[in-house]
């Protein structure tokens, strides 16, 4: 399904009412995006202007001063947080794509005992609130001495715990014609070769969608890092920002906004370049965010 064509169900209206709709939509977008623009603008204003022209989204003079103050506002600078977040997010993407595509291939194509039973269980874990596993997992990682390392945040991703991605990939794999694997089997290909040479190359769009969502969700994750990372040197950007709120951020509005803007940049870049992929991913699978 392409989402960008003129909608089939779309109804044509007279120019007058369509103008009114445009006016309403423009107004709504402006109201919705104003806070974001305001944050962006405030991060470039100087202290005095934040208070003098608080509401404006057009700074009269542009300065990067807030960024400088924010970057070094804590005992650990923000480049450490960005590095930590990048490492965790990239490893999570790899883990998710590899482990979930393997599981999805098994569910979509392989014959094994109790396949439907395991598939139902896998879907069941989608509904299970993470609270149920939270405390024993914490105890487990504590005994493994993994607290204060990135392992509790990354290793589970290599075990395909994000059932959403498995489901997404199963849906996609089922759409690939079976004749292709039958033909490959005739030519003597085993399941690994079929997975590697046929399924993966044909499912690049869904892999990209899973990778991007996986990156964004890991980047934004707050709860797990909050529990597992206690040492400021191991903080992710989300934890760093939170620490900044609690320290100087209360008084230094501009620096706080500057750092907030920076933490949003990677997500925003993905949005700009891949928004069609993201929107189609949501429209076809109904993913949550």
């Amino acid at each position: 399904m392409t989402t960008d064509a003129i909608p089939r169900g779309g109804r044509r209206r007279s120019t007058g009412s369509s103008l009114a709709v445009h006016a309403a939509l423009c107004f709504a977008s402006l109201v919705m995006l104003y806070p974001l623009l305001w944050m962006l603008a405030s991060s470039f204003k100087d202290e005095a202007e934040i208070f003098a022209h608080g509401v404006s989204i057009f700074p009269t003079s542009w300065t990067l001063d807030a960024y400088r103050r924010g970057w070094e506002g804590l005992t650990v600078t923000f480049d450490v947080f960005f590095w930590n977040s990048a490492v965790i997010s990239i490893l999570s993407v790899i883990g998710n794509v590899v482990s979930c595509s393997l599981a999805a291939y098994a569910f979509a194509r392989l014959q094994f005992k109790g396949r439907n039973f395991w598939f139902a269980l896998m879907l069941g874990t989608l509904m299970l609130p993470y609270h149920a596993t939270l405390i024993p997992q914490y105890v487990l990682f504590l005994h493994l001495d993994w607290v204060n390392t990135i392992l509790p945040l990354v290793v589970p991703k290599f075990m395909a715990v994000d059932a959403f991605f498995i489901f997404l990939m199963v849906q996609f794999f089922r759409g690939i014609p079976r004749e292709l694997d039958e033909a490959a089997k005739m030519d003597g290909c085993g399941p690994w070769r079929i997975y590697w040479k046929i399924m993966l190359p044909l499912s690049l769009p869904v892999m990209a969608t899973a990778a991007i969502f996986s990156f964004i969700w890991t980047w934004d994750e707050f709860f797990a890092p909050l529990i597992y990372l206690n040492d400021m040197g191991s903080y992710t950007v989300q934890l760093g920002l939170r620490a900044f709120v609690d320290s100087s951020g209360k008084s230094d509005f501009g620096a706080l906004f500057a750092m907030s803007v920076l933490t949003l940049v990677p997500v925003f870049v993905f949005f700009i370049f891949f928004q069609r992929l993201l929107i189609e991913g949501i429209a076809t699978t109904g993913m949550k965010r």
Binding site: M32, L36, R242, M259, F268, R289
Partner: peptide, 9 residues
């Protein structure tokens, strides 16, 4: 907003 909304920022 949906995409950015989950973050601390």
């Amino acid at each position: 907003p949906s995409l950015l909304g989950a973050s601390v920022a």
